[in-house]
Amino acid sequence: MTDALLALVRRDLRLAWRSPAETLLGVVFFLVALALFPLGVGASPDILARIGAGVIWVLALLAVLLTLDRLFQHDHEDGSLDLLLLAPLPLELAVLGKCAVHWLTSGLLLVVASPVLALLMNLPPDAFWALPLALLLGTPSLTLIGAIGAALLLGSRRGAVLTALLVLPLYIPVLIFGVAAVDGVVLGLGAKAPFLILGAIQLAAMALAPWAIAAALRLASE
């Protein structure tokens, strides 16, 4: 069982490595879109610092959203999903493995890039650890919640657009507490509670989302 899971993770990581353009799409979008803000808002460092955390989080949601379709779409189109169903591996576990790979190739890249972005948005020094930490706690939830939407709309026309409409409202709690965590640290309001809630959302998503995703995939394979 673990062999099958490791084989799946290794295959997906290899696929991500072989198609860097697709893999890096999310993080490159993140960087480019963020670079537009200082240009758009104008040369007022105070305003940038005020809106910085919010802007970075909103763009992180969109960047993850951009990469959701590659989670199951290819497997559905080329028949690999059927193979996954025939593996001696609970589908819930397989799904968790696929989500882990997706996070490694999307959310983790955003975490790594985030200190640079904090600099770009003129955030105070405390944000250089608060922002990556908040993203580290929040982005796995984005992958897991988004995967439910991606799996539900598998095979439907304009699935990507519909996924965005379905998933973005579900991202709101992560957004609120993600911004609250960063602002709490930067403004010295205390950020323990939002960090804990981000962690709680992640744990809940990890425990519950695989069941929903697996159920949606079983429907899609009919």
Partner: peptide
Amino acid sequence: SALHHLGYQDALKPALTVAENLEAAAALLG
């Protein structure tokens, strides 16, 4: 886990080689 199903789709990953595809599928299927 007792059956093979070969549909009209080949369930192959275009970016991987023939050997890598077979190796991944075999490991996945046990």
